[in-house]
């Protein structure tokens, strides 16, 4: 399976990383090198093998569904590049 320039463009878009048009060919080549390496996995017989979900057999713990934290608006916003009036500020999302 080979990745072309258009696929590279689509992947960059899905990952929300801006890649200039002239860099796409090189990117596609890098993807192909890595995916070529990964192709070896096709040699393995995985018939009937369950995909791993948890490396240590464990049941996730549950806790009571109650509020245990909160009231920290200042702290939540303290690292925001743009925070105004108690909110994160972003460019207009809806016209």
């Amino acid at each position: 399976m080979s990745i072309d320039k258009e696929t590279a463009r689509k992947v960059a878009k899905l990952a929300r990383i801006k890649v200039e048009d002239e860099a796409l060919d090189a990117l596609a080549e890098e993807f192909n090198a890595i995916l070529g390496f990964v192709e070896q996995l096709n040699e393995v017989d995985v018939e009937g093998v369950e995909p791993m979900t948890s490396v240590t057999p464990m049941r996730l713990k549950r806790r009571a569904d109650v509020v245990t934290d909160g009231d920290q608006q200042d702290k939540v916003l303290s690292n925001a590049p743009d925070a105004r009036e108690g909110f994160f500020a972003v460019p207009k999302v809806v016209e």
């Binding site: 990964v38 996995l41 096709n42 393995v44 995985v46 093998v49 369950e50 995909p51 791993m52 979900t53 490396v55």
Partner: peptide, 8 residues
């Protein structure tokens, strides 16, 4: 497929 190989 990778997760299956991980099991193995």
């Amino acid at each position: 497929r990778a997760r299956r190989v991980r099991t193995l």
